[in-house]
Amino acid sequence: LVRYRTISKIPQITLNFVDLKGDPFLASPTSDREIIAPKIKERTHNVTEKVTQVLSLGADVLPEYKLQAPRIHRWTILHYSPFKAVWDWLILLLVIYTAVFTPYSAAFLLKETEEGPPATECGYACQPLAVVDLIVDIMFIVDILINFRTTYVNANEEVVSHPGRIAVHYFKGWFLIDMVAAIPFDLLIFGSGSEELIGLLKTARLLRLVRVARKLDRYSEYGAAVLFLLMCTFALIAHWLACIWYAIGNMEQPHMDSRIGWLHNLGDQIGKPYNSSGLGGPSIKDKYVTALYFTFSSLTSVGFGNVSPNTNSEKIFSICVMLIGSLMYASIFGNVSAIIQRLYSGTARYHTQMLRVREFIRFHQIPNPLRQRLEEYFQHAWSYTNGIDMNAVLKGFPECLQADICLHLNRSLLQHCKPFRGATKGCLRALAMKFKTTHAPPGDTLVHAGDLLTALYFISRGSIEILRGDVVVAILGKNDIFGEPLNLYARPGKSNGDVRALTYCDLHKIHR
């Protein structure tokens, strides 16, 4: 019993810090008490220290592992850092350059016999395009090294910054494609005289377009951006097909006994025919423009016929181009109408809503002055909100995010209106959640004399007048207030005048 009563005193000691020596009952000389009392004092002292730490809000209350900052290894790049964003855009520009100039170089340097010394005699450094290609190869190699040090988000939505895990993730992902696209074939085969082989191998750079397509997928929600990307894709495919079309004609031209190829026909049409040795002929500019003209006309199913396939190889390629053109029509131009419709969806919704308003007016036989006010209010409210119901949009977000959005939407009023000066951010967040926005066209009466005042109004834009009878008592403008002081009276009061809008007004109100 003594032991039980001794232990039962522990909660009292913990909360009230009572010393055991003052209790005459606990001072009985028993061996059990002498053993338990020192333990009680020690526990009391420890609990006292913990309570003191909690009340003082000291940093040592938290466990040590929670006080440590997340460790980022040296030379690790955050995937959302500004440097990584700028670097990704730079790589994107280099990939676009590669997609345009690599097929052009591979096709127009394929057994090209233009006048001038061969590239091997001039030297590697004197070729501007080769120098640019070398810079692109170096940048792609540097990009691989950067990807080995860039964080990523795993399946659990955690940012991984450990170098080993980053390397394994990159090896399992895009490393092989990036490595093949970054191989400097110019340096590996330079001086061997195989410019045709170098041009063909350099087309491996186009593998990076797969990554670019995935990154550009984030802009699919913007109709104008999608339309622009589709047109660029169409032009890029036409450019690639033009390079292939020229390569076919250029390879067949020296081996044909009869002059029936499209390059021969082009030379005869523009007065620059090929001679018996295969030299001469149109310039590279004429060849490229004509090839691009043929691919565009074939892809769009126009086909004027002034550039036509004559050999079997050219006919087979033309059939493939027609098939590609039909697929592009289905996948690209078939979506253009939907994209344009999405661009004008706001206008369509406006006309639909206006039609419903006019049908309501016609069905209920609203008189002319009231009908005009109804239409003007709808037009003004639509121009202010673009038909978007803010309350319906915010309803799907958590309250903390709703408060931040409301604070942002009402920031101008909260910053410049005098009653809100000096208020804490928590108070402003709470008030912003209570605001209701209303609009009024010129001549609209917001409050009639004798109406119950259940709200306090803040003028965000425009001006109003307060009338008693036919006498203008006051004219209020931006950041002015009218209405009933909230919670100042037990019952809502009545208006002693009319409140009429002089201009288009936007008002925020808080109800009782």
Rank of each mutant, 00 (worst) to 15 (best):
L394N: 03
E221L: 01
A423K: 02
T424V: 03
Q402Y: 03
R362D: 03
C400W: 11
T290E: 01
L229F: 11
V180D: 01
Y293M: 04
R211T: 01
I77Y: 01
Y274T: 01
D88T: 01
P441M: 09
A181M: 01
Y222T: 05
S81V: 01
Y350P: 01
E115Q: 06
L446W: 01
V86Y: 02
Y350Q: 07
A130L: 01
G191F: 04
S276Y: 04
A167N: 01
G334W: 03
S383W: 03
K287I: 04
A238G: 03
F360H: 01
Y80R: 05
M433G: 04
F83G: 14
E375W: 08
V302H: 08
R208V: 09
P442N: 02
N368L: 08
I244D: 01
R165F: 09
Y80K: 03
F420P: 01
I146T: 04
G164D: 05
L209C: 05
D268R: 12
Y350I: 01
F363L: 11
F304T: 04
V142F: 09
Y344R: 04
K84E: 01
G305L: 01
R429I: 04
G305K: 01
E64R: 09
I405F: 01
I91C: 04
Q372D: 15
L394D: 01
F304R: 01
E359G: 03
S345Q: 13
V168R: 14
R362E: 04
L299K: 01
G396E: 13
M179A: 15
N275H: 04
S258N: 12
F360S: 02
N156H: 10
Q353I: 01
C400P: 09
V95F: 01
E157M: 15
L134P: 01
T437S: 08
H169R: 05
H351S: 05
I270Y: 03
E64T: 04
L279W: 07
K215H: 01
L431M: 11
H416E: 14
G422L: 10
R218D: 03
L92I: 05
H364E: 01
L94M: 14
D217W: 05
I284L: 13
V131Q: 05
R165M: 11
T113Y: 04
L374N: 01
D286A: 01
G281N: 01
I366N: 01
Q372T: 13
E252G: 03
N310S: 05
L263R: 01
A181S: 11
P184G: 01
E64Q: 15
R205C: 01
P82M: 07
A449L: 07
T385M: 13
Q341L: 09
F228C: 13
A235W: 01
A291E: 01
R259K: 15
L241K: 01
H416Q: 13
